[in-house]
Every structure is written in structure tokens, then in C-alpha cells.
């Protein structure tokens, strides 16, 4: 039946298509399918974005309830003072900084660890069944629910390692915990762990996709294996490293569940950055835009009139993730530009 309809459709161009007609049709169908999928994804995404934007704008520009503030006042309050609005939401600004601190710290952990693991698996470990098993397991780890990582982070990092650190270095402060309590460092480590499989898979796939003659070229010029890995292979795979980090960033900024357990709070005592080394307040609790959204929806009595400002918080979260991703994409584009003949965009 399929063959019949192919004939009808193709009768005009049959001559050219004989032989691999079926394959071509199949690949055409695949192209059509993926094109329509991409289109619908774009439609849904822009629909969501528009929805957020219109609710946010109508709240900013309209008059809800007894409120008389102008749009600029509302925006200022939402971003810098928060609570004065009386919505029970905290200010966005410290939460944006908290999210940034988390993303930066998480990247500092996950990038070297993920790259090193991927390099080990593809360039050093012999391709035995055991290596394959490890690779498959890592891929599966990417599917473990985020909250599980949160529970692990609380038990292992916060109470386990944090508790030990307190006993060893901050004994005089006990029983008040310093590191033995949820905080930015543990949250970043938990997020790094959560994202490690994602980064490893992205980099491993990038390494697998490199042409084999790249390694031969390097070796034939008198490079040792290590030199080949770090001076030829890794630079060539940098775009895939950034792909992994883009995915990781999006998750660290958007995934709230594990943060509930390891350090995100509604009101932090201070900003996460300081002017003293290491410039990040590692042991402090921190605010997070995703957490704020979660908190706003879950712990406030909200009605239909609140959709507007909640949409504004959501919009800011989406914009924040987009900006972070744009940075990573720009980096990747620069690297790709140095490598590839074609412009990546």
C-alpha cells in the first residue's frame, strides 16, 4: 500500500528516484516530521512566552485591586524591595544574584569533572564491556529525578562532609553549624552532581564524533598520547563542552526541587557575593529565582489577580536563563567560528 502511494506521488520523477526511492522518501518524511516538530516547539515556546509577557504587562500597566502604583514603581518594588508590595514575594535582585552565584560555582565544579570523565572514558579507558556499562549507566543517571539528588546532597554534602568540616575546623562554634547546614557550596555541588551526567554525555558524544584522523594527525607529528588528547582532541571538542554547559546552566537556574533541601531560602541574610576572597559566600544560604517562583505559588494564598506578578517573576527567570545560555552559545560560536568554514548561525 505504501509502495502504491509512493508510485502515484512519484510517477513524474520516477526515473531519477529508482533504486533508492524508498530511502529518499523515508528521509524526506523524516525531514518533514522534524520540521513540523521544530515548528510546533517554536510555536509552543513563543506561545508560552507571549502568555507570560501579556500577563506580566497587564499587571504592570493595569490597575489590580486597590493598587495605585505606576508601572515603574511596581517594577522597582518587584526587583529591589519585593515585600513592600505585600504579595509575600521577596525581591528579585538578590535572587538573580543568588542564581548567578549558584550557576558560576556549579560550572566551576561540573566543567572540569565532566570533561575529565568524558576524556577518560573515550581517550584512555579501553573499550571493554565494562566501559560500555559505565557509559550506559551515566546516560541513565541523567534521568534520575532531581529531588533524589537533593536528598543525596543533604545527606552526603550537608550532614556528611559539612558536619565533618565543622568538627575539624569550626569546633568552637558548635553546636551552631557553619558548613553542616544547607548553603551555597553544597547546593552548587549537588547541582554539579545532578548535571554531571548531562555534561559527560554531551562531551563524550562530541569526542566520539571527532574524525579519527585528527588523532592520527597529531601522533604523526610526534605528539604523545597526552599531548594529542589535550592539544588536539579537547580543543576540537570544545563546542560540545559548551553544549553540555548550556544544558547544565539551564537546569541549575530552573531546577528547584533539590535546592529546597540544600540551601535555597526565601530571604537570605546577605548577598551571595562579597569583596573578600573567594568573593562568594560559600556557607551562606542564598536566594534563587526558581525557588521564589515555587515559594510564591505554593506558600501564598494566591488568586486570579496574582497571575500578573507571578508571570513577571517567571518571565525574569526565563530571561535570566536565556541570557546565561546566550553567553554560552556566544562562546561556542566563537570557538566554532575558529574551527568551521560555515557561520554557525
Amino acid at each position: 500500500m505504501v509502495a502504491d502511494s509512493e508510485k502515484i506521488v512519484l510517477s513524474g520523477t520516477q526515473r531519477q528516484l529508482t533504486g533508492s526511492r524508498r530511502e529518499r522518501l523515508r528521509s524526506l518524511a523524516m525531514i518533514g516530521l522534524s520540521a513540523s516538530m521544530v515548528t510546533s516547539i517554536i510555536l509552543v515556546a513563543s506561545g508560552l512566552f507571549l502568555l507570560l509577557l501579556t500577563s506580566s504587562l497587564s499587571w504592570l500597566l493595569g490597575h489590580v485591586g486597590t493598587e495605585n502604583a505606576t508601572w515603574s514603581e511596581k517594577l522597582y518594588q518587584l526587583i529591589f524591595t519585593g515585600t513592600e508590595l505585600g504579595y509575600g514575594v521577596s525581591a528579585i535582585f538578590p535572587a538573580v544574584l543568588g542564581t548567578l552565584a549558584l550557576v558560576i560555582l556549579m560550572t566551576a565544579f561540573v566543567a572540569p569533572l565532566g570533561v575529565a570523565t568524558a576524556l577518560y572514558l573515550t581517550e584512555y579507558a579501553r573499550p571493554t564491556w565494562y566501559t560500555k556499562l559505565i557509559r550506559i549507566s551515566i546516560t541513565n543517571l541523567a534521568g534520575v529525578p532531581a529531588i533524589i539528588y537533593g536528598v543525596f546532597g543533604l545527606g552526603f554534602f550537608v550532614y556528611g562532609i559539612g558536619g565533618q568540616v565543622d568538627q575539624l575546623f569550626f569546633g568552637d562554634q558548635l553546636p551552631n553549624p557553619t558548613f553542616g547546614t544547607p548553603g551555597l557550596l553544597w547546593a552548587a555541588l549537588t547541582m554539579a552532581l545532578l548535571n554531571l551526567p548531562v555534561v559527560i554525555v554531551a562531551v563524550t558524544e562530541g569526542l566520539d564524533a571527532l574524525p579519527g584522523d585528527l588523532r592520527e594527525a597529531s601522533v604523526a607529528l610526534g605528539a604523545t598520547h597526552g599531548e594529542t588528547v589535550f592539544k588536539a582532541v579537547l580543543p576540537a571538542a570544545m563546542p560540545s563542552v559548551f553544549t553540555g554547559l548550556i544544558l547544565a546552566t539551564a537546569r541549575a537556574a530552573g531546577e528547584v526541587a533539590p535546592l529546597l533541601l540544600v540551601g535555597a531560602v526565601k530571604f537570605a541574610p546577605a548577598l551571595p557575593f562579597s569583596d573578600r576572597l573567594p568573593f562568594i559566600e560559600l556557607e551562606q544560604k542564598f536566594m534563587h529565582v526558581g525557588f521564589q517562583l515555587f515559594d510564591a505559588v505554593l506558600f501564598n494564598r494566591i488568586g486570579p489577580g496574582d497571575v500578573g506578578w507571578i508571570a513577571s517573576v517567571a518571565l525574569i527567570l526565563v530571561l535570566l536563563i536565556s541570557i546565561l545560555n546566550l553567553f554560552a552559545i556566544a562562546f561556542r560560536a566563537v570557538i566554532l567560528g575558529r574551527q568551521e568554514p560555515a557561520n554557525p548561525f
Binding site: D213, L214, A220
Partner: peptide, 16 residues
């Protein structure tokens, strides 16, 4: 390998 150089069938410049 520095004294005996090699060129392969397919051009294989580094992506640099």
C-alpha cells in the same frame, strides 16, 4: 615521528 613525517590520504588539518 618528527624525523619521519607522514601525510594521509584525506587532508586532515586540525580545526585550528
Amino acid at each position: 615521528r618528527r624525523q619521519i613525517g607522514m601525510v594521509f590520504q584525506k587532508p586532515n588539518p586540525f580545526p585550528k
